[in-house]
């Protein structure tokens, strides 16, 4: 047998194909069954979009979706601003006092079980006697997702040659303008990716939202969860398909934007 390290063995190909099939098949099946005309989720009754119509007539579900979207957009935006600032401070602030505490606080939520994050925030809100709902969930999601934004932006910032900023200063820009003219355009894709990650994480979250929300303001995952506990319903398949489709569109858009911006960087000079 000839040994060439870059040659794919049959074993390599098999494990790749099986692995990807394992990752995608369940979602594909879910999507297909969302178009099933039969009420019995497992009996194929022909193609239909009736479950989508059902969803769009389900007041409670729509409210939950609207709540999730609002929480997602606001918390992702807040998290992006805070996370980017944190990333700048951590990479460009050198060794300031409290830096270790700050990075500790920013990394801990990444690995901490959501039940603990949720519980601790709830206890805070109760102690502050804050009415729980949209605002508290948004705060909770901002806290969690800004840590992810920090990691994404920080890794991009760390990859940027410091001499680019120095060159900008050498060419007459004060530090702030140098940052705006050179660093910001270069980390822009990471900031956008951070926002999207924050948004999808918020859209996704069940546990923290369950702790921090109040009666009457359920997010979409909370609604779905309570439905799923009662069993499989074709309407849920439809909702899940919509979410998967929505996220797919966001991902495609994002990759298009980043391709476009790298293709026509020449005239978009933010001088």
């Amino acid at each position: 047998m000839s040994v060439h390290p870059l040659r794919l063995s049959r074993f390599n190909i098999t494990s790749l194909v099986l692995g990807l099939a394992f990752l995608y098949l369940p979602i594909v099946i879910l999507v297909i069954y969302s178009f099933n005309a039969s009420r019995l989720v497992t009996v194929w009754g022909g193609w239909s979009t009736r479950w989508y119509t059902e969803f769009f007539n389900d007041r409670a579900m729509l409210d939950a979706a609207w709540m999730s979207l609002r929480v997602g957009v606001v918390s992702a935006t807040l998290a992006t601003v805070l996370g980017t600032l944190a990333a700048i401070a951590l990479t460009r602030g050198a060794g300031f006092r409290g830096r270790t505490l700050m990075s500790g606080m920013l990394y801990a939520p990444l690995v901490m079980p959501e039940v603990i994050t949720g519980l601790s925030l709830l206890l805070l809100f109760v102690a502050l006697d804050a009415g729980r709902g949209l605002v508290t969930v948004t705060i909770a999601h901002t806290t969690l997702t800004m840590c992810f934004v920090t990691v994404v932006v920080q890794s991009r910032l760390a990859g940027i040659d410091r001499s680019l900023e120095e060159a900008a200063m050498d060419l007459g820009r004060d530090p702030l303008r140098a940052f705006m003219a050179v660093t910001l355009p270069l980390i822009w894709p990471a900031i956008a990716a951070g926002w999207m990650l924050a948004f999808t994480l918020s859209l996704d979250d069940l546990v923290i939202a369950s702790f921090t929300t109040g009666p009457g303001s359920a997010t979409l995952p909370i609604r779905i969860y309570s439905e799923v506990r009662l069993g499989v319903k074709p309407e849920i398949n439809a909702i899940c398909t919509l979410i998967v489709g929505f996220i797919a569109v966001v991902i495609v858009l994002a990759s298009l934007v980043s391709k476009l911006s790298s293709a026509r960087g020449e005239s978009a000079a933010p001088l």
């Binding site: 369940p26 979602i27 999808t200 899940c240 998967v244």
Partner: peptide
Amino acid sequence: PFWTSFLIRIYAWIN
């Protein structure tokens, strides 16, 4: 797949 909701992924398996 990591970008799609984990709840959806679990639900897909319940299906």
